[in-house]
Simulated scan of single mutants.
Amino acid sequence: MSLMSDIIAKAKARRMRIALPEGSDERTLRAARILTDGQIAEIILLGQPDKLNAQAKTLGFTLDGIEIVEPVTSAAYETYVDEYVQLRQHKGMTRKEALEVMKDTVFFAAMMVRNGIAHGAVSGAANTTAHVMRAGIQCVGVAEGFKTVSSFFMMILPEFRGEHHVPYFFADAALVPNPDASQLADIAIATADNWKALVGTDPNVAMLSFSTKGSATHPDVDKVIEATQLIHARRPDLNVDGELQFDAAVIPSIGERKSPGSPVAGHANVLIFPDLDAGNIAYKITQRFGKAEAIGPFVQGLNRSFNDLSRGCSTEDIVNTVAVAAVISQAQA
């Protein structure tokens, strides 16, 4: 069974409530039908019921069994407006402004997640990443113990070291341009926890660098070393080591030679890159040259699962992202 199939099976075993704010988007409507029929998640569509039902009918299906919420007619609308004013009063938010903000389905969905009405939300098919992340940070909030909202990719290699469909998690490859040591520690801890939730095995976390155990000296290496020390202090339960070069992290013979006795070298499955340049380039090289499947990015570091999509996403992308959001929500519940 592939990792994605396994994640969908986990989602089905304990169905979570996932809000889809972009109900008027055709891809979202189709995904809602697939997710509901497949019993992958309990879907809450946001939008005007009459319009969404009519749109679905023209596409050849119904929205039977799917809850539809229109923000301005919802019983929670005024409550969310008042709560949002409280959350943003330090920024000068007025009730008049909040009334307009809560008409936005992405922000309304974020408040649903904040209040536990939905376990998570997935949007971005019709909204920018900046807009989705603004709603997530302002309404859902950053997770306790974290200061950094980041992302990870699930990379599925077709073959590696004689095994097929081999998963690795890459972070951060989408959001944080130049993390400091504390942010890098946040990224590593969040990614490790998501590996455990989604894959089910223990994460082996490699803090990557152009140096392995002092083979080079540079402030960039010092940052990775400091981040590794911070992780050991915060989460001594995690199997993490650094600084490690990529080959030392994933090739047993090289890991043994360059970092003998390391608990991670040669066996890493979670790869933490020192900055966004390295992470983004690495995932694209792995995808294009290595023919790997790149699934994501998935947002992490928020109080609850609140994910962003590419505006070029497919219906299948939405289905897969909802399944991942559901399984992460299971771990958070």
Rank of each mutant, 00 (worst) to 15 (best):
A331K: 10
V176R: 08
Q229T: 04
V327K: 03
M111Q: 09
D202I: 02
V81F: 04
A173F: 00
A233R: 12
M4S: 01
I318K: 15
D241K: 09
A333D: 14
K103T: 13
G92Y: 12
G279T: 03
S259A: 15
D104W: 09
V240G: 13
T105N: 08
F61P: 08
L271T: 04
A130F: 00
D82L: 06
E70P: 08
A32V: 13
Q287A: 12
Q183I: 05
G136E: 13
D180F: 10
L238K: 04
P263L: 03
E144C: 03
I156D: 07
R161Q: 11
V324Q: 00
L244Q: 02
Y77M: 03
I18L: 10
S2Q: 14
A206K: 03
D180T: 03
F108N: 11
S2P: 13
V69H: 06
R235E: 14
A125W: 12
V221T: 15
E83W: 05
I251F: 14
D82Q: 15
P167V: 05
I40H: 00
A206L: 11
N269R: 06
F152I: 06
D317E: 14
I254Q: 13
M4N: 06
I68Y: 07
K213P: 04
L157D: 08
H131M: 01
P252L: 12
D220H: 05
T315A: 07
R304F: 05
T148R: 14
F289N: 04
H218T: 02
R30L: 13
A173D: 05
D180P: 11
I251K: 01
A135D: 08
L63P: 12
V327W: 07
Y80S: 09
D186R: 08
L20K: 10
D172R: 00
E26F: 00
R134P: 04
A174G: 12
C139S: 15
I156A: 01
Q39S: 14
V205Y: 09
R304A: 13
A56W: 05
V149A: 08
A326Y: 01
S24P: 00
R257E: 11
P203R: 11
N307F: 07
L238E: 10
R30T: 14
K12G: 05
K258C: 01
F61S: 02
L99M: 12
A110W: 05
S24N: 12
I254H: 06
P158A: 13
E100T: 10
V199N: 06
V142I: 15
M93R: 10
A206H: 11
P71A: 08
T217Y: 08
E163P: 07
